[in-house]
Design a protein around this nucleic acid. Structure first.
Lengths: 150, 150
DNA sequence: TACGTCTGGTTGTGCTCACAACCAGACCGC
DNA sequence: GCGGTCTGGTTGTGAGCACAACCAGACGTA
């Protein structure tokens, strides 16, 4: 045995693993729901949501990558896929010759409109309704965010 | 505007995204801590922990894959890496000629003993202490698990 | 024993991602 | 205006994963 403060007790271990497992299962479920109903990935859905919320329906690549917590090369490839599917187009940034925008197409907006209820229903059902509201979660997230500060 | 029940309000959206982001950051941080201090992945750490908790320090591949929420092919490759590093060995299952065990080596146990305090400290600092205990989290996880039941 | 089926594990393949290298354009000092 | 440096985005490469195909061994039935 080692001093207890350096280890997790049985309950703590169990909770920690459940957290990891639930995260994973929740994400998988939401992804599956979107795939089966709209042939679309949860990740791709995230791109469309962020673009739809931006004024004009477009964002700089780097800005979008930051919001999605994705590397820039990762975003380049993900946008490649969405462009191939006609959901997004690239547009040169007039103010900065290096930059480019990712912009939602009509087809992208339509698909988002169609898929959003599926996603939202999942979030409600699996998370919000299950927890009976998000007050407690919000509180906890703030504390964890603070602890994660560098 | 669409009927509110089908959409998330601003607060709900914000919380939902924070949840996704915090998950991601927490995992990344714990991974980074292990990498920098012990040259080891959070995923690999998970394998060692599960093996160390099994009686005899070994588990059937399929059993281990289930516990890690990993596909069997994924586990095969992950074990390949740990075998290459000398932390785990494969052993034939005497009772079933098809099966094989993954078994912790002395080096694997030593590395786990060395790395565990790092990981545990992270979980305590970023999660348990931040939340002031796990009671609330446990409660919430149970509810989400129930909602995720098929 | 012999044959069909099932199961555990590995291998082939393709996807997604990060890191590093790279290129073009912007920015700065002079 | 002109070099040096910085920055936004893409491309090269390798890691980690899932799905499907596969193989050897186990299991059931006759």
């Amino acid at each position: 045995m080692v001093e207890p403060a350096l280890w997790l007790n049985y309950e703590e271990q169990k909770t920690w693993r459940r957290l990891l497992a639930v995260e994973c299962r929740l994400r998988d479920r939401l992804d599956q729901d979107l795939r089966s109903a709209h042939g679309m990935t949860l990740n791709d859905y995230g791109v469309l949501v962020h673009l739809s919320e931006a004024v004009g329906g477009y964002l700089r690549m780097s800005e979008l990558a930051d919001r999605l917590l994705l590397s820039r090369s990762g975003l380049t490839r993900r946008i490649d896929g969405l462009v191939r599917d006609g959901l997004v187009i690239r547009r040169a940034c007039p103010a900065d010759g290096r930059g480019s925008f990712a912009e939602l197409t009509k087809a992208g907006m339509d698909l988002l409109q169609e898929a959003a209820p599926t996603h939202v229903a999942g979030v409600r059902r699996y998370l919000i309704d299950a927890l009976g509201g998000l007050g407690g979660l919000n509180e906890g997230l703030s504390r964890v965010e603070t602890a994660l500060e560098p």
